[in-house]
Design a protein around this nucleic acid. Structure first.
Lengths: 151, 151
DNA sequence: GCATAATAGTTGATACATCAACTATCGTCA
DNA sequence: TGACGATAGTTGATGTATCAACTATTATGC
C-alpha cells in the first residue's frame, strides 16, 4: 500500500462539517417556515422513534449517535411540546421508555417531506451510484474513527 | 436524467454530520491531550490566519464558513489567550485587522501535526483517488445548497 | 447475601452555532 | 453635501454538544 500524501485541505471539506452544518441550517429554516416547531436534532430523535417506538434513552443515544446527556435534554423539550411521552420502564427502573405521540408522528411525517425536498435539491448533478460510493467511504472513515475512539 | 429514487437514509450519513462531529470530538480531545488549549473551531480560524495574516473578521468569516457573530466570539477568546491580536483598520474604521502572534503560529503548527495524524488514521483503507472523488461530490452538494440558500 | 461493578439517566460548566436586532462607519448619488 | 443604503462588527436569546461528576438501580461473583 502506497503512502498517501494527504494534505489537510483534501480532507477538511469532509472533516469540517461544512456540508452538514449547511444542511442543518437550511433544514432548521425550512422547519420554521413550515411551522413545524422542531429542530433537526429533535427531528433525528423523533424519526428514530417513529421507526421504532418505545426505545430507552440509551437506545436512542446509540441509534442517533448522540450522547445520553444530549438525549436527556432533547427528550425534555419533546415532552414539553407533547411530541413524545417519557415513562419509567416497569422491567428496569433505571430505564425510561420513550413513546412518540400521534402529534409527534404527524410532525415527523411532515418533516420528512421537507427533508426529502432539500436532500433532493442538494444532490442535483450527482448520480445515485456516486451517493452510495460516498456513503461507503464515509462508513469506512467512521469505523476507523470509532476504533481510534477506544483508546 | 433519470429521477433518482433517493431515500433519506442514503444521504443522512452525509447530512447528519456524524463524521465531522466524530472528528471534531477526537481532535478536541487530542488538542487537550497535547496541552494545546484550543478548540477545533479556534484552530480553523488560527490556521486561516497562519496562511493569510491580517484578515478582517469579515474575511475570516468567509474563509472559514462561520458567521460573523461566531467569529467575533472566537476572536475574543483567541485574543484573551494571546494567539491573535485585534486592531482597528486604519483605512476603514468599521473593520478590524486580525494578526496571528508568534505563539499563535507555534500552536497552529503543533495542532497541524495532531490533525494530520488523526486525518491519516481516519482514511485507512481509502485511496487518495476516492478522497478526491468524495471531495468533488461534496463540492457539488455545497454549491447546490448555497444556491438554495439564496431564496 | 453482600460487596462491587456495570448500567441508565440527570445535571452543571463550558463552548459554539444560529438568528436577529443593534451601533458605527463608509459609499453613493441626486 | 446630505440622506440613505450597504457593510463591519457586537450582542442577547436560545438550542445543542462535550465532559465529567453525580444518583439510582440492577447484575455479578465470591
Amino acid at each position: 500500500m502506497e503512502t498517501t500524501e494527504l494534505k489537510i485541505e483534501d480532507l477538511s471539506i469532509i472533516a469540517n462539517g461544512y456540508v452538514s452544518s449547511l444542511i442543518n441550517k437550511l433544514l432548521n429554516r425550512a422547519f420554521k417556515k413550515h411551522n413545524l416547531n422542531i429542530t433537526t436534532e429533535q427531528w433525528t430523535v423523533l424519526t428514530s422513534l417513529n421507526n421504532n417506538d418505545f426505545q430507552t434513552q440509551q437506545g436512542l443515544s446509540e441509534d442517533t449517535f448522540k450522547q445520553k446527556g444530549s438525549i436527556t435534554r432533547l427528550i425534555d423539550t419533546l415532552v414539553k411540546n407533547q411530541l413524545v411521552e417519557r415513562t419509567s420502564s416497569p422491567n428496569d427502573r433505571r430505564s425510561n421508555l420513550i413513546h412518540i405521540t400521534d402529534l409527534g408522528k404527524k410532525i415527523d411525517n411532515k418533516a420528512k417531506e421537507v427533508v426529502t425536498d432539500i436532500y433532493n435539491k442538494s444532490i442535483k448533478g450527482v448520480t445515485y451510484t456516486e451517493i452510495l460510493k460516498v456513503k461507503s467511504i464515509m462508513t469506512i472513515i467512521i469505523n476507523n474513527l470509532i476504533n481510534e475512539d477506544n483508546l
